[in-house]
Nucleic acid binder design. Structure first.
Lengths: 202, 202
DNA sequence: CCAGCAATGGACCGACCGGTCCAGTCTAGG
DNA sequence: CCTAGACTGGACCGGTCGGTCCATTGCTGG
């Protein structure tokens, strides 16, 4: 990486990351090559290695960071204000819609498996994203509790963790089967169980 | 594939599949090579292509089949007789233990991403495994219902689907983070919600 | 016992692809 | 301006690895 990036440099780097992200979606992480990225982003080998001296791995890592942010951004503004049952329902719809649209390609999951445990950074990115995600869910549950919709002694963290797991599972099944049934079931059941806790405390 | 396999042939084929499975766990799907498999199984290139004329893809597919069966077998006999709350608890322990032991390598998931949508068979294997798994869960819920532990009008399929998603999500988070917190939370919360349905029908 | 096919060994190939290198162009700052 | 360093183009390299081929051995059924 050069000492300093000019405006032009930043633009190119960005173009490469976004283009690479698209390529990975289309061709799949396993089969995408640097040449594919070059073609897509109208750049040369030397540019790739200019901005990502660590080579392919570093590029994939940058894409992973980009994708992780995307995942959370796509859920806004709903994920940020889960303070009523209606808000939860709207958020659920957005999540289902997002992943149905994405279809059967999970750039982030595949990316992680590719870059894998080899690099320390890959795992950190995913972990941080999951943490942020779960914290948003926890905040939503706390908001409901504050509104008197949930009992004061509800175990917020376990609930949030279970909900996050349910979503992840629904998504991974969607990726495997192409069907969003399980994602829907997981979200509906998760929210329903939360509601019934409000009516009949555990 | 030859017209007919002799006893020796079957043994060799089996040795290759099991060895390949081990290699994939150790080296990771992305980096494992046919030479690794050869070394591990004390076989030659020609043997690999003799038993798997389709090459690497066909071998990976065979391994995937093998792994899928393994996943369900490892949960027996518990998964097969979920007819009391104690049985569910025991099963939960087995699942957590199995995946904690497996650590952060998911041969099946990685396999699917590698062979991917390219081959029609890969998806079918995963789908079939998920179906069998979910059906076992559904049978367990029905058993509880029959025993009067759950209300007669409970939505068995949605419950089973949500539970399966929760497990899958817990596992995939375990793979990403190395921590089994979410898998535990998902299973505990899932079973707890089922129980509370028994006490306070939805 | 002897065809015929399964089973095995291993040399060899060739494409693919990540990575290197250098030569040339643009640009910001003094 | 002019020069240092960012930026770009693209030829080239070399290892890796899936896949092919043929020669040899072993088994099996008629």
């Amino acid at each position: 990486m050069p000492e300093k990036l000019t405006a032009k440099g930043r633009a190119t780097r960005r173009r490469i990351v976004e283009g690479a992200s698209a390529v990975l979606r289309e061709r799949g992480v396993a089969t995408a090559t640097l040449d594919d990225v070059m073609a897509r982003t109208r750049s040369s080998k030397s540019q790739l290695f200019h901005y990502f001296p660590g080579g392919k791995d570093e590029l994939l890592l940058a894409v992973a960071r980009f994708e992780a942010d995307q995942v959370l951004e796509d859920q806004q503004p709903y994920l940020g204000s889960l303070d009523s049952w209606e808000a939860w329902e709207r958020w659920r719809d957005v999540v289902v819609e997002r992943y149905e649209a994405q279809g059967d390609e999970c750039p982030l999951g595949a990316l992680f498996l590719q870059v894998g445990r080899s690099t320390p950074g890959a795992r950190a990115i995913v972990v941080e994203m999951l943490n942020r995600w779960q914290e948003s869910l926890a905040a939503g549950i706390r908001a409901l509790r504050a509104a008197g919709e949930l009992p004061p002694d509800i175990d917020v963290d376990t609930r949030a963790a279970a909900l996050l797991a349910a979503i992840q599972g629904g998504v991974s099944i969607l990726l495997s089967t192409g069907r969003s049934t399980h994602l829907r079931a997981a979200l509906d059941q998760g929210i329903a169980d939360l509601r019934s806790t409000g009516r009949a405390p555990a």
